[in-house]
Design a protein around this nucleic acid. Structure first.
Length: 466
RNA sequence: GUGGCCAUAGUUCAAUGGUAGAACACUGGUCUGUGGCACCAGUUACGAGGGUUCGAUUCCCUCUGGCCACCCCA
């Protein structure tokens, strides 16, 4: 190859008159590629196995623990979340995707699913079903938060909710299920658990906390002063080093629980002890949603190297007041949700993806137009026989096809060229040994079945009778 | 939402005030009858807009997106 292009380029360039009538320079690209919307992402095929693994496990746990499938809409009336999650929470205050529809409805993308489940429970009269009603869900949630690793604006949760039963054993079993979920995926996690009592006892505690911190007001950071006014419970998980000291002296919620909540919490812990679930009592654990009562818990990944910021994998608790708050009859309930995005990234770290691309046992290679035609038909025969076969029908070179066969880990390559078509045969190549045999073209599927050990005794004789 | 760092081929990374290279990947060839090797060739990028400048991918501003910390949580 000479450098011929030089000349034509110049001759082409010369006659172009710099008319410059249109100042718009032809763009390098026809159109600009469009970026992802902030905080959104594509889930791609190489990760499919991890998603499937966790979703399958959720499904099977649901079956064994007796949870029924439910899927609620992604869009709900905004009021559901304002009432359900709580007006003063971060989720509602600054993370809600809300808009007004053409019809004037005020709707939002769900930031979590519990409120929707409760709405469905009320709406479908599930209180008439045998109690408790146990439901599980899996799907995308949306929060307009600042994205970071492990934090997306559309993220996926799988959750279990148990409505209509107040007993502490429910709380315990929910912790057990969520723990088992992570455990069976091979994720080492810690349960942190606490009780925040009834709304009344919590209010008393809140007041005690406020008066305690008021006396230390001058030692609080601006941030913490704001929290003291807005959500004093949040002061407890402040990371300000100053707070560690102040916290130690602060009243603890445990001491402010009513007798019933205290007993309830003790029962929950006893059940957990019985099953041997490791947990940490965390007197500072208060969840960011208003609806929780009594038991609250969170699951954290135990990271091996450095402490990851986004290590919260899930959480849940009891929400005895929520059904009533959303217009149903007073109904006790509890549940949890686990963040699949973080679980999947954890799984991926734990079991790095293997190099294996789409593996097939058999690869079908063809040569020449006649061979290709035959191969198209033969591929269909394999499909009917339910045997996955790789192909590159659009490729002409046998070499390229053999490369592909190798890349996809095929044990056998079937080769059909001009010659085979004329003879009514096919070549089967053993990719490991490199040996080849010529078989009757009509029996290729049968031969491959035999080699792959897919023949039962019956089909063996059936194949022979053919 | 606040603050900081960052943005170059599909990916991981270079270089440069005079419009860009490598590796891997991809496509083709050596080789219309055979893969795991080798060699050769080729395609593909300065996130967007504005400013400074004779000239900007490089400097400045804005936007967009990513990462980190906070906030909060999954």
């Amino acid at each position: 190859m000479q450098k011929k292009p030089e000349a034509p380029k110049k001759t082409l360039a010369a006659p172009v008159k710099p008319v410059a009538q249109d100042p718009i320079v032809p763009p390098k690209r026809a159109v600009q590629p469009i970026q992802l919307v902030r905080g959104m992402r594509d889930l791609l095929s190489p990760d499919a196995a991890y998603w499937k693994q966790s979703q399958d496990l959720a499904r099977s746990l649901a079956a064994t623990y007796g949870y029924d499938w439910i899927e609620t809409p992604i869009v709900e009336e905004t009021a559901l979340f304002i009432r359900g999650v709580g007006k003063a929470t971060d989720i509602v205050e600054k993370e809600l995707y809300s808009w007004e529809t053409q019809g004037g409805e005020h709707v939002s993308l769900r930031p979590e699913c519990t409120a929707s489940i409760v709405r469905a429970y009320i709406q479908h009269g599930m209180l008439n079903l045998p109690q408790p009603v146990k439901l599980w869900y899996s799907g995308p949630m949306f929060r307009h938060d600042r994205p970071q690793a492990g934090r997306f604006r559309q993220f996926y949760q799988v959750g279990f909710e148990c409505l209509g039963e107040a007993d502490a054993v429910i709380d315990a079993q929910l912790v057990i299920v969520s723990w088992n979920f992570l455990k069976e995926l091979g994720i080492d996690a810690t349960v942190r658990i606490n009780s925040i009592g009834t709304p009344e006892s919590r209010l008393n505690y809140k007041n005690a906390l406020i008066s305690y911190f008021r006396t230390k007001r001058n030692r609080l950071s601006e941030d913490d002063k704001r929290r003291l006014l807005k959500n004093p419970l949040r002061l407890l998980d402040s990371k300000d080093p100053n707070m560690v000291e102040l916290k130690a002296e602060a009243p603890q919620i445990i001491d402010w629980l009513d007798e019933e909540s205290k007993a309830h919490f003790m029962h929950v812990l006893e059940y957990l002890d019985e099953v041997g679930i490791p947990y940490q009592l965390d007197p500072y654990l208060v969840r960011g949603l208003d609806y929780y009562t009594k038991t609250v818990f969170e699951l954290y990944a135990n990271s091996m190297d450095q402490e990851l910021a986004q290590s919260a994998l899930g959480g849940g608790g009891r929400y005895d007041g929520l059904v009533e708050l959303l217009g149903g009859r007073p109904t006790p309930a509890a549940g949890f949700a686990i963040g699949l995005d973080r679980v999947v990234s954890r799984l991926k770290e734990l079991n790095p993806p293997t190099e294996s691309e789409r593996q097939v046992d058999v690869f079908l290679a063809q040569l020449g137009e006649m061979g290709r035609k035959k191969a198209v038909a033969l591929f269909e025969s394999f499909r009917q026989a339910n045997i996955p076969v790789g192909e590159a029908l659009a490729k002409a070179s046998i070499k390229a096809q053999m490369e592909m066969a190798n890349k996809r880990g095929a044990k056998y390559a079937i080769i059909i060229g001009q010659k085979e078509v004329l003879d009514g045969t096919a070549v089967i190549r053993d990719m490991d040994s490199g040996t080849q045999e010529i078989v009757d073209g009509k029996k290729v599927v049968h031969e491959i079945k035999k080699k792959l050990g897919l023949l039962t005794n019956e089909s063996k004789s059936a194949g022979a009778a053919h």
